[in-house]
Write a protein that binds this DNA or RNA. Structure first.
Length: 933
RNA sequence: GGGCCCGUAGCUCAGUUGGUUAGAGCGCACGGCUGAUAACCGUGAGGUCGAUGGUUCGAAUCCAUCCGGGCCCA
C-alpha cells in the first residue's frame, strides 16, 4: 500500500481462459460431441452446395483387429485433404468403407469354432458368424477413426457385405464376361487331401519333413549330337523330392544361360549343369565318370537355351514325349540344373507351362488318389505311390540315385497333414485376350495409366511395371465368406451356363436379398423361368461354389460405391493409399474399371510410404518397436498424431518414435501458445476497432504483408499435396516472424499504450487478422485445437461460422507494390536487428546492460543501409529492437557495427522503458495512457 | 534373385538446370526475463551430405559398385 502505485492494474495485460495446457486426451472427445451435435459432416456439405466437387474415394481397410499406425496415418491424411478442400469451397463428401469378406475373417471364425464346431456348422451359419465378426470390427474401427478426428459419413459407410455392394460385383463380372475378359481355366493351389479343400497361404504351417530325394534319367528320344558320341543312351538328369508328381511331368526346364555338360557314366551320358556335376556324383556315390569332350579335348559346354526344344520320353507314360524348355526360376544351388516340370503341381511350373503353352495334366483326385491319368499307378494314393514309383523307376534303369532329404514342407493348419499342389478349376481375368474387336485388358490398362496423375511421379513406374508383368488374375477362391462367382454349371453336360438374363437375375437377387441367398435358394427360385443350358438344353443348373477374390470385391467399389451413391461419382478425383496398393486396390480398381468401362476409376492417385520406427525399420511385435495410435491418443491426443502425419514427407517411408513424438508435442505446444497469445490480446477487440491500412504503423503493415505471404505459401503447399511444407511454413512463421519478432515488439504497445489508442488498436487489428488466418490454415491438420481456438475467439471474429471447419479459407489482401517495398526494406532491418541482438548479448555478458530496454544502441552502417533505416524512423527502430533509443552513424568501413551503451533517462515504473519521466513519475506515453482511462 | 523407392546435423525438413566457408526450426548447452510464466527472449556448440570409385576446373547434386532400409514379387 501507500508509496508505489500498482501500475500493473493500469496496463492492458493479456486475458484469456484458453488453457495453456492442451489436455487433448480429455478435451478432444468434447469436441467430437460438439461436432456430432451440430452435424458437422452435414454442414460441411451444406456450405458448399453447388460448388465444385472433390471426391476422395476411401480405400476400405480390412475389418479385422484394431487400427494401427499405418491405417491411422492413412485416414488422417485423407481427412486433412477433405477438410482442406471443404474449406476451399469444394463439395467434398467422404464415405468411409470397409472390406468385410475374405479368408482372414473366415479363418479366425473357424479357429474360434474349432474343428468339431466346424463340422456341425452349415455354410450359411458360418457366413452369419463371419458377418457378425466383421461388423464388430467395423464398429470398433469406426470409433477409432472418429476419435482421430476423421470426419465423414460414418452413419452410412460402405461395406463390401452390403447387398447393393455385392450386386456391383456381378455388374462388373457381367460386363467383363461379355467382353471376353473372363475365362475358366486351371491353376495349382495348396490342397489338403484329407480335408479335401483348398488352403490359403495363411492356412499353411511349415514344418520339417523327410522326403524322397531322387535323381531320374529322362532319355532323349533324339539325342543332341554334341553329346551323342558312342554312348548307348543319352538323357537329361532331373532331381525331385516328389516322385508322385512324375506322372504329370510334361517338360524339363533348364537355366537359360547356364552351361550344361554331358557326364559319361558307363555307356550312358547324362546332361546336367556343369557347376552341379560334382555335388551330383558325390551324392549318388559315382566313383568313375568323365565329361564328354570335343575335338579340342575340352569338355563340351552347351547353354540351356541351345538344348531348348529337344524331346525326351516321359518317364512314366509309354510313347509320350516331354520337351526341354528354359525358365528363370531354375536354381543352380541344388539339384541338377534340370527341373522336372509338372504344371498341374507347382506354381512356377504352372507359369512356365503357361508361357510355353504346355498341357497341364492333373491325375490326382481331390482325395489324393491317382486317376487313370497316372497310368500304372491309377487308384493309388499319392503318399503310397512314392516308394512304388521309386522302385518302378529303379527297375527300369531310370534311377541314378534314390535317397532321403530333410526339408521344410507345407502342412494343413487344421489336420496337420502334408499338403500338395494340385491344379483345380479356377476363374481368371484375361490380361491379353478379349473378344474380337475389344482391346486386351493389359493394353487398355496401360493406356489408362497414362491418363491418371500419379503422385509422387515415380508411382507411375511402379503401377506400369506391375501391370506389364502380372499374369492372368485368378479371381476365384474355394471359400465360404465372400461373394460367389455368379455363374452356373449344367448338371447334365457340365458346361458353364450364363447369359445377360441370368446375370441380371443374380444382380436383382443380391440387391434384394444379399449374396447369402445364393447359398440358401435354388436357382429356379430366382432365375427367369425356362432358363436352360444353351448347349444341351439341360434344366438343372448348379450355382458356382467358388467365391470371388477380395481384391476383386474392393476393386469394384467404383461401381458399388461411386456409381451407386447419389453424392458420389465415377471417376473420383483422388484415391490415396500406401504404396502396397499398387498391387492391391489401385490395380484391382483399375483393371475392373478398364475392363467394364474402358477408363480409369480415378483422376489422380496419391501414394504414401509405410510407417517405420525411428531407425527406418518396419514395426513388428517380435522386435518390440510397435507404436499404437490408440496409445498416443490416450497419452498425447489425436492432434499430435495429426501434426506428426502432416509434418512428414509421405513420399518416403514415415518414421515414428518416442523422440519424434516428443518433438511433435514440442511443436504443438509452441503453436498452441501462439494461438493463446493472439487470443489473450484480443480480449477487448471487436472489428469496429479496426485500424485502416493507411493509419497503421509501418511494422504492422509489414506484419500484414508477411501474413499474406504465409497464407499464399501455405495454400500453394496444400494445393501441391505437400503438407509437410504447410507444417514447416506455419511453424517457422510462429517461431521466427511472430514469437521472436513481431509479438515481442508488440507487447510494449499492447500492454502500455492507451486502451483505445490507434497504436494499440492497430496492433490488435493485425493480431485479429493473423488469428483468423492461422486458425483456418491449421484447421485441416490440428482439427481439434483449431476448433477449440475458434470457440475462444470473440464472437465477432468468427464470421458467423459455428465451426472453424466451415469458416472458409483466408485471403489476405495487401497492395502488392507496398508489400514488395516493405519486404525489401525489412530484409535490411532484420539483418541489422540480428547484429543488435548479438551486440546486446555481448554487452549483457560484460555487465554493461541487463535488459535490452536499458540500452542505447549506436548503429554504424554504410550510406545506403542508413538510408533504409532512417526511412523507418529512429523511434520505430528502437521499438523494433526493444531498446531505449537508437542513434545512426554512417561510415563506409562498417557494414553493420553496433555499440551498446547504458540508456539515458530513467526506468518508467509502469512500462519499464527508459525515458525521461514526467512529474507524475511515469513516462509521457504512460502519463497519457493513464489520463485516458 | 527381380521391379519400384529411400539414406543431408539427435529430430523434422530446405538445398533451383553440378559452382563461393551445406541452410532453417526444434532439441541440447549456456545466459536473460519474471506483465505469453509448467510460458517467453538471446547466444552457442552440432553435418567428411550412407560408403567407395569415377566423370568434371568444380558434386550433397551426374555415373558405377557396395552397404543399410522399405514396399511388392520370386
Amino acid at each position: 500500500m501507500g508509496d508505489k502505485p500498482n501500475y500493473k492494474d493500469t496496463m492492458n495485460l493479456p486475458q484469456t481462459d484458453f488453457p495453456m495446457r492442451a489436455s487433448l486426451a480429455t478435451r478432444e472427445p468434447e469436441w467430437l460431441k460438439f461436432w456430432d451435435e451440430i452435424d458437422i459432416y452435414g454442414k460441411s456439405l451444406e456450405v458448399n452446395e453447388g460448388g465444385p466437387t472433390f471426391i476422395l474415394h476411401d480405400g476400405p481397410p480390412y475389418a479385422n483387429g484394431h487400427i494401427h499406425m499405418g491405417t491411422a496415418f492413412n485416414k488422417v491424411f485423407k481427412d486433412l485433404i477433405v477438410k482442406y478442400k471443404t474449406m476451399r469451397g469444394y463439395w467434398s463428401p467422404y464415405v468411409p468403407g470397409w472390406d468385410c469378406h475374405g479368408q482372414p475373417i473366415e479363418h479366425q471364425v473357424e479357429k474360434n469354432l474349432g474343428s468339431k464346431g466346424m463340422a456341425e456348422t452349415s455354410k450359411s451359419d458360418l457366413r452369419a458368424m463371419c458377418r457378425d465378426y466383421a461388423m464388430k470390427f467395423v464398429g470398433i474401427q469406426a470409433e477409432e477413426f472418429k476419435r482421430l478426428g476423421v470426419r465423414g459419413d460414418f452413419d452410412n459407410p460402405y461395406l463390401t457385405l452390403n447387398p447393393s455392394y455385392e450386386a456391383g460385383n456381378v455388374r462388373i463380372f457381367k460386363e467383363m464376361y461379355n467382353r471376353g475378359l473372363i475365362h475358366k481355366g486351371s491353376k495349382p493351389i495348396h490342397w489338403c487331401m484329407r480335408c479335401k479343400t483348398a488352403l490359403a497361404e495363411a492356412e499353411i504351417e511349415y514344418s520339417d519333413e523327410v522326403s524322397d530325394s531322387i535323381y531320374v534319367k529322362f532319355w532323349f528320344t533324339e539325342a543332341p549330337e554334341v553329346f551323342a558320341g558312342s554312348a548307348a543312351k543319352v538323357g537329361v538328369l532331373i532331381w525331385t523330392t516328389t516322385p508322385w508328381t512324375l506322372p504329370a511331368n510334361v517338360a524339363v526346364t533348364l537355366a537359360d544361360r547356364a552351361n550344361y555338360v554331358g557326364v559319361r557314366i558307363g555307356d550312358e551320358v547324362l546332361v546336367m549343369a556343369e557347376e552341379l556335376v560334382k555335388s551330383v556324383v558325390e551324392t549318388a556315390g559315382i566313383e568313375s565318370y568323365e565329361l564328354v569332350t570335343g575335338a579340342d579335348g575340352e569338355p563340351v559346354r552347351v547353354k540351356g537355351s541351345e538344348l531348348s526344344g529337344l524331346k525326351y520320353g516321359q518317364p512314366i507314360h509309354e510313347n509320350v514325349e516331354g520337351v526341354i524348355i528354359t525358365g528363370g526360376h531354375v536354381e543352380l544351388s541344388t539339384g541338377t540344373g534340370a527341373v522336372h516340370t509338372a504344371p498341374g503341381h507347382g506354381d512356377e511350373d504352372y507359369l512356365v507351362g503357361f508361357k510355353f503353352n504346355l498341357p497341364s495334366p492333373m491325375p490326382v483326385m481331390d482325395n489324393g488318389v491317382f486317376d487313370d491319368g497316372a497310368g500304372p499307378f491309377a487308384g493309388m494314393h499319392v503318399n503310397k505311390a512314392n516308394p512304388v514309383i521309386v522302385e518302378w523307376l529303379t527297375e527300369r534303369g531310370d534311377m541314378l540315385h534314390a535317397g532321403k532329404t530333410d526339408h521344410s514342407y507345407p502342412h494343413c493348419w487344421r489336420c496337420k497333414q502334408p499338403v500338395i499342389f494340385r491344379a483345380t478349376e479356377q476363374w481368371f481375368v484375361n490380361m491379353d485376350e478379349a473378344k474380337e474387336g475389344r482391346t486386351a485388358l493389359r493394353d487398355g490398362a496401360l493406356s489408362s495409366i497414362e491418363k491418371v496423375e500419379w503422385i509422387p511421379s515415380w508411382s507411375v513406374n511402379r503401377i506400369r511395371s506391375m501391370v506389364t508383368d502380372r499374369p492372368d488374375w485368378c479371381i476365384s477362391r474355394q471359400r465360404a465368406w465372400g461373394v460367389p462367382i455368379p455363374t452356373f454349371t449344367c448338371a447334365t453336360c457340365g458346361d458353364v451356363v450364363v447369359s445377360d438374363e441370368i446375370f441380371d437375375a443374380v444382380i436383382h437377387l443380391f440387391e434384394t436379398e444379399g449374396a447369402d441367398a445364393w447359398f440358401t435358394k435354388e436357382p429356379a427360385e430366382y432365375l427367369p423361368a425356362g432358363t436352360t443350358c444353351s448347349r444341351c438344353g439341360g434344366t438343372e443348373l448348379k450355382p458356382e461354389q467358388n467365391i470371388v477374390d477380395v481384391w476383386w470385391e474392393s476393386g469394384v467399389s467404383h461401381t458399388s460405391v461411386l456409381e451407386a451413391r447419389d453424392e458420389l461419382r465415377r471417376p473420383a478425383e483422388l484415391y490415396l493409399e500406401g504404396t502396397d496398393q499398387h498391387r492391391g486396390w489401385f490395380q484391382s480398381s483399375l483393371l475392373t474399371s478398364v475392363g467394364a468401362y474402358d477408363e480409369p476409376p480415378f483422376q489422380r492417385v496419391l501414394t504414401h510410404g509405410f510407417i517405420v520406427d525411428g531407425d527406418g525399420r518396419k514395426m513388428s511385435k517380435s522386435v518390440g518397436n510397435v507404436i499404437s495410435p490408440l496409445d498416443i491418443i490416450e497419452k498425447s491426443g489425436a492432434d499430435i498424431i495429426r501434426l506428426w502425419a502432416a509434418a512428414a514427407d509421405y513420399s518416403q517411408d514415415v518414421s515414428i518414435s518416442d523422440d519424434i513424438l516428443a518433438r511433435t508435442s514440442d511443436a504443438y505446444r509452441r503453436m498452441r501458445n501462439t494461438y493463446r497469445f493472439l487470443l489473450s490480446n484480443l480480449f477487448d477487440y471487436t472489428p469496429d476497432r479496426a485500424v485502416a491500412w493507411g493509419d497503421m504503423p509501418e511494422i504492422d503493415q509489414y506484419a500484414m504483408a508477411r501474413l499474406a505471404d504465409v497464407v499464399e505459401r501455405v495454400t500453394k503447399s496444400y494445393d501441391d499435396w505437400k503438407f509437410h511444407q504447410v507444417y514447416h511454413t506455419v511453424f517457422n512463421y510462429c517461431v521466427t516472424d511472430l514469437s521472436s519478432f513481431y509479438f515481442d515488439v508488440l507487447k510494449d504497445r499492447l500492454y502500455s499504450d492507451g486502451v483505445d489508442s490507434v497504436s494499440r488498436r492497430s496492433a490488435q487489428t493485425v493480431l485479429a487478422e493473423i488469428l483468423k488466418a492461422l486458425v483456418r490454415i491449421m484447421a485441416p491438420i490440428l482439427s481439434f485445437t483449431a476448433e477449440e481456438v475458434w470457440q475462444f475467439m470473440p464472437e465477432s471474429l468468427r464470421d458467423g461460422a459455428v465451426s472453424v471447419h466451415i469458416a472458409g479459407w483466408p485471403d489476405i489482401e495487401v497492395s502488392a507494390a507496398e508489400a514488395g517495398e516493405l519486404r525489401e526494406a525489412y530484409v535490411t532491418v532484420l539483418e541489422v536487428r540480428e547484429a543488435v541482438t548479438k551486440a546486446l548479448e555481448d554487452a549483457r555478458n560484460d555487465k554493461i546492460v541487463g535488459k535490452s530496454q536499458e540500452a542505447h544502441v549506436t548503429i554504424t552502417v554504410q550510406a545506403d543501409t542508413a538510408h533504409i533505416l532512417e526511412a523507418r524512423g529512429i523511434e520505430s527502430l528502437a521499438e523494433m529492437f526493444i531498446v531505449a533509443s537508437v542513434s545512426l552513424d554512417v561510415r563506409t568501413a562498417c557494414t553493420v557495427c553496433v555499440q551498446i551503451t547504458p540508456a539515458i533517462g530513467e526506468k518508467c515504473p509502469r512500462c519499464w522503458s527508459f525515458r525521461d519521466l514526467t512529474e507524475d513519475g511515469v513516462c509521457a506515453r504512460c502519463a497519457s495512457a493513464l489520463a485516458s482511462q
